[in-house]
Design a protein around this nucleic acid. Structure first.
Lengths: 249, 249
DNA sequence: CGGGTTTTTGCGTTTAATTGCGGTATTTCG
DNA sequence: CGAAATACCGCAATTAAACGCAAAAACCCG
C-alpha cells in the first residue's frame, strides 16, 4: 500500500468517525505502529488531523484554517452576512445572486428559519441545501464557469415570473452617483432582472467596494432599498447613500 | 507500444482502480521502470494523476473523502462509467439524471471531449463544471434535498423542450418484466420526461440492482436502448435484456 | 531513398524516501 | 507509585527516484 494511499485511508476514517486509534490502524493496514505514527504526524503537520496520544482526532472540530489572505475580507463578509440575516423572517421568498458574501450569508442562516430561497448560484445553492427547513429553488440555464452561476435568457425569463419578498445582491462596485456596476455582461443582465422582480432590494458590499465603479451598469442607486457593509451605519462614506433615502445597516 | 497508447492505458488503470504501481505496470507493459516513471511524470504534469512514491493515484481520489462503505460499489461504478463514456462523441447533447454512477461518469469524461451536458443533478453539474470544453446547462426548479436534483413541473417542461442525442440514467432498479422502477415519485416524473425526450436511452445500473423492483414505475424495458452494468455482456442475468433487443455493454 | 535531427528508451550510478526495529523516554491510568 | 501503553530517536536495509549518457527508434525533409 502506498504511503499517500494509506494517508488518504486514514483521513477518510478520521473524517467519518472523528477519531482513529494507531493500534487499530496498524493491524488493519498491516504496517508497523511507527509508520502509522509518522503518517499521523504528517497529516497533523498539514493540519488535516489533530494528533493525540494513541491516535488522532478530526481537525474539523477544532475548526479549520482557511486561505490566509482571504481571512481578512472573510471576517468582513461574515459581519455583513450577520446583518443581512437579521432581515429574514419565516415564510419569506428570498432571491439571491452569487458571490462569496452571499455564501457567507447562506452559512449563517439560523437553522430554525423556514423560508424559500431562489438562486442560480451553485455555491450558494450548495449551502442552502444543507439547511433543514429551507426550500430551495434553482434557476436553470447555461452555467457560466467563471461565476458559477446560471446565466442566459431562460434564467432571466424565469426570474421575471416570480415576485420575491426580498433580494440579496452581492455587489462588485457601488457608487452614489453611478449606482451598482459590474464587469460581467451576462451576470449584469441577470441582476437587472432580479432587481426588477423583487419587492425589496438589499445590496451587500464590503467597504472597499463602496464608491468604486465597474464598466457595466446594473441599476441606479434609487433602486436599492437597503445597503449593508461591515462598517457602522454612521460611517461617513455611507452618508451619501443614507441621504438618498437608502436604509444603511 | 506507443507512448501515448501507454499513457492512455495507464490513465485508464488509474481511473478504474484509483492507483497504479510502477513496478506492476512495467512488468505488465514490458518496459523499464524509468519509462513508466517518465510517463507518470508527464501525466502528473498535466494534472491527470497524482504521482507518489511507488506509483500514482487518481487525482479525483484526492479531492474528496468518501464514505468507506461505498468504496466497494464505487469500483463497480467506475467500470460502468468507463463503458458509458465510450458512447460519447464530440458535439453531442447529453442529458443525465443524478446518482453516484453518473457522477463517476462525469469524472471520467475525457478532457478533450467537446459536448453539451444537461442535468438537474447538483453533484453531476459540479463535476461537469470542472471540465474545460463542456458546456453545462442546468435544469432549474425546486431542489429535492434527498436526491440533490431539481424536480417539479418546471423541470419537466424544460426537458420536454429539448431533444438530446443521448440520455444516461442512473437506475435504482431494473427488471426484464417491470422495466425501470424507482422509489421517489418526483424523480420518477423527471426520468419519464427524460426518456421521452431523448433519441437514445442508456441505463446505468450496478448488477445488484438488476432484477430488482421498486414501487414506482419509470418505464417499460423496451424504452431502453442500451444497458450498462459492471458485468460482462455475456453474463447470464443480462441475457433476458439482450433477448429483448437491448444492447448490453 | 538517405542522412541528419529529434524523441524515446534502457542502463548504471547516485541520491533520496520509506519503513521496521531496538532502545529509551514519556504519558496514562489504576 | 508502578505497570502498561505509547511516543520518540537513531539506525540500517530495502526500495524508488533522479540524473546523465548512449543506443535505438522515429521523424523530417530535400
Amino acid at each position: 500500500m502506498l504511503k499517500k494511499e494509506r494517508q488518504a485511508y486514514i483521513l477518510q476514517k478520521v473524517n467519518l468517525h472523528n477519531k482513529v486509534l494507531s493500534s487499530l490502524l496498524c493491524s488493519e493496514i498491516n504496517v508497523s505502529e511507527d509508520t502509522i505514527r509518522r503518517d499521523l504526524q504528517e497529516l497533523a503537520d498539514e493540519g488535516k488531523v489533530i494528533k493525540v496520544h494513541g491516535g488522532a482526532l478530526s481537525s474539523s472540530f477544532y475548526e479549520v484554517s482557511l486561505p490566509p489572505a482571504a481571512v481578512y475580507s472573510q471576517q468582513k463578509k461574515k459581519i455583513i452576512a450577520q446583518k443581512a440575516v437579521s432581515l429574514l423572517e419565516d415564510g419569506m421568498f428570498v432571491l439571491t445572486s452569487g458571490g462569496t458574501t452571499i455564501v457567507e450569508m447562506a452559512r449563517m442562516l439560523p437553522t430554525q428559519l423556514r423560508a424559500t430561497f431562489i438562486s442560480g448560484s451553485i455555491p450558494a445553492i450548495l449551502e442552502y441545501m444543507h439547511h433543514p427547513h429551507i426550500e430551495v429553488i434553482l434557476i436553470g440555464d447555461k452555467i457560466s464557469k467563471n461565476s458559477k452561476i446560471t446565466v442566459g435568457s431562460e434564467a432571466i425569463a424565469k426570474i421575471k415570473h416570480i415576485k420575491p419578498d426580498i433580494c440579496f445582491l452581492g455587489t462588485n462596485a457601488i457608487d452614489p452617483e453611478q449606482g451598482i456596476t459590474d464587469n460581467d455582461w451576462e451576470v449584469v443582465q441577470l441582476k437587472k432582472a432580479m432587481i426588477e422582480a423583487s419587492r425589496k432590494v438589499v445590496c451587500l458590499s464590503i467597504a472597499e467596494k463602496v464608491n468604486t465603479i465597474q464598466p457595466i451598469k446594473v441599476c441606479d442607486t434609487d433602486k436599492i432599498d437597503i445597503l449593508i457593509t461591515e462598517l457602522a451605519p454612521e460611517s461617513p462614506q455611507l452618508q451619501p447613500f443614507a441621504a438618498m433615502g437608502i436604509r444603511v445597516l
